[in-house]
């Protein structure tokens, strides 16, 4: 299957008064056509920065980015404008991602006017088509964002992202700010659109349950580093990295008849400023050892399942032993 997006050794550092922040540190991954890559992690792990860097909304510090096999690491002005059509983004906060002074119609028409250079009848028709596609009532076209609820605003954001017929969309926590019942509506919409148009998504979220539903593959990030990546079901059935384990066990479940043994992490997240070499999770890890001080390589431990942990095999073996002992 062709790889729509591929990144190699991508780094994004920010200069801050406290020092150099390693927001994204040496991340490599690829996403195939029509698939959703879930990127999970908690605040400060760099997932949002990763998404924005890939689509050139922020400039990378180092590394390579490929789109449909083409090297787009250093696009020229003209190329960048073309890329805007193919690479789009849906934002998290429906309250701040829409210009408060523009109506629904104007917001959706902006990209159509700027890039696809539409006007008149064509413009109106396309706007209507997009609104219908995402499920916004035509009568709302002259409404302002503050008159709409979060779910509808998010639909406007999705219509805007779709207006340029992109191939790849970064979904940056698109449902985190919505109520549960609206979340389900929007997730269903995104999945339907993917099925119909063969869209490729990078779905960024901190919500593991959501990611399980919508992603084909999942990558787990911690403090700028990618620590584990594998097909979705595989990750949830056999989490290998200690952080992934903790993350999964921390999720409160509604299945109260089968309470999960929660792994409570000790300590707080360490700082992403001028970090020490080696695994950044070591400070909170129950399996920390000397080997953790070296840079961890992503290694294939199970089929198609990569982990950046020097003790991954051991931990996996321990788990199996434990499961065998308990029925």
């Amino acid at each position: 299957m062709e790889r729509v997006i591929e990144i190699k050794n991508l780094k994004k550092y920010f200069n801050s008064p406290r020092g150099m922040v390693h927001a994204v540190d040496d991340v490599s991954m690829y996403i195939e056509k029509g698939q959703t890559m879930g990127v999970v992690g908690e605040s400060g792990c760099g997932k949002s920065t990763l998404g924005r860097t890939i689509i050139h909304l922020q400039e990378k510090t180092e590394g390579e980015i490929f789109f449909n096999g083409r090297d787009i690491s250093h696009p020229k002005q003209k190329e960048l404008k073309e890329l805007r059509s193919s690479l789009q983004i849906i934002f998290q906060d429906p309250y701040s991602s829409l210009n408060p002074r523009m109506t629904v119609e104007e917001t959706i028409q902006e990209p159509l006017k700027i890039i696809r250079k539409m006007n008149g009848e064509e413009l109106r028709g396309e706007t209507e088509r997009l609104m219908e596609l995402v499920g916004i009532d035509r009568r709302l076209r002259l409404s302002y964002p503050h008159e709409l609820d979060g779910g509808r605003r998010q639909r406007v954001g999705i219509a805007r992202a779709l207006s340029l017929n992109p191939r790849f969309i970064v979904c940056d926590e698109p449902v985190s700010a919505l109520d549960v019942s609206i979340q389900a509506q929007i997730l269903n919409l995104l999945m339907d659109l993917q099925d119909e148009y063969g869209l490729t998504y990078m779905f960024i979220t901190h919500n593991m349950s959501v990611v399980r539903h919508i992603s084909h593959k999942v990558s787990v990030m911690y403090l700028g580093q990618m620590v584990e990546t594998s097909p979705t079901d595989e990750l949830f059935e056999h989490p290998l990295h200690p952080y992934t384990n903790a993350l999964l066990s921390a999720i409160p479940t509604t299945d109260i008849l089968h309470p999960r043994k929660r792994i409570i992490l000790k300590g707080e997240i360490t700082s992403p400023v001028d970090p020490e070499p080696g695994c950044r999770f070591a400070a909170r890890c129950a399996y920390v050892s000397d080997g953790c001080k070296k840079t961890q390589e992503m290694r294939e431990i199970l089929e198609n399942h990569f982990v950046a942990c020097c003790r991954a095999e051991e931990i996996y073996q321990d788990k199996i032993n434990l499961e065998e002992r308990e029925p």
Partner: peptide, 10 residues
């Protein structure tokens, strides 16, 4: 974010 969004649409 709407400023970022504007940049993203060209």
């Amino acid at each position: 974010e709407y400023l970022e969004a504007a940049e993203a649409i060209g």
